[in-house]
């Protein structure tokens, strides 16, 4: 597991994507800066998941160029853990085959502590709560020597309180293990508390309607002026 990103590049150039007759993305240009937390917000069905799948390489664009450098791993909305593997076995999926047993042991211990799941190492996912499962997912992508993390509404299946807690957990974890993050959410407050930069997307065919940069340091209180200003701007942009 790395503590810092060594190299990461993620660039979309004139990317379009359509499913049959449905054009989802039209000539999208996007540069994800190394080390930033980029948050995408936009209406349901506008193509956020599609965009992440293009970034990760799970699907190929209909046209355009995608440049990637660095290891990319995804945190899924839910059920991304293999239910037949324990917490430790799931996290170990990310380890490189070159590591020896002692290195694995040490990293596992560090990761388990990082996500506060001591004592649950041998549990299976169905024996964990939703928040615990998402923390295991985060540990798994950190184990994988990843440079870039794609997160598709990772906390949206959780209850409100757990969601708040996970938001600050993620900030804490990213302070220790710096990564480039592309984070998709419906939750505007979540976006403004997490992001270095927020892109507001329009309805299909999707374009970027507005870009906000938030400079104030994390963790940010929800009454922080930078958070409130950003929320106001985004709500106006979405005509809500």
């Amino acid at each position: 597991m790395k503590d810092k990103i060594i190299k990461s590049q993620l660039v979309l150039e004139n990317v379009s994507h359509n499913y049959g007759a449905v054009t989802v993305l039209n000539n999208l240009n996007l540069v994800v800066n190394s080390g930033e937390v980029l948050v995408l917000v936009g209406p349901s069905g506008c193509g956020k998941t599609t965009l992440l799948n293009l970034l990760s390489g799970h699907i190929k664009p209909s046209s355009g160029i995608i440049k990637r450098e660095g290891i990319i791993l995804t945190v899924y909305q839910q059920d991304g853990l293999f239910p037949w593997l324990t917490v430790v076995e799931n996290i170990s999926l990310g380890f490189s085959k070159l590591m020896n047993d002692a290195e694995r042991e040490a990293e596992l211990k560090e990761l388990i502590e990082l996500i506060h799941l001591n004592g649950f190492e041998q549990y299976y996912p169905h024996q964990l709560s939703g928040g615990m499962k998402q923390r295991v997912e985060i540990a798994r992508v950190l184990a994988g020597d990843s440079d870039i993390l794609l997160m598709d509404e990772p906390f949206s299946a959780l209850d409100y309180q757990t969601r708040l807690r996970m938001r600050f957990e993620l900030i804490r974890i990213l302070k220790q293990k710096q990564r480039t993050v592309v984070f998709v959410t419906h939750d505007i407050e979540e976006a403004t508390q997490l992001a270095d930069r927020i892109l507001v997307l329009t309805n299909r065919p999707t374009t970027i309607s507005c870009e906000l940069t938030i400079k104030s340091p994390r963790p940010r209180n929800h009454s922080d002026p930078s958070v409130i200003n950003a929320i106001t701007t985004i709500l106006q942009e979405m005509k809500l």
Partner: peptide, 13 residues
Amino acid sequence: PNIYFSVAKDYDI
């Protein structure tokens, strides 16, 4: 579920 195959791809299985 398709997601298992996505995860498998992520971890090069």
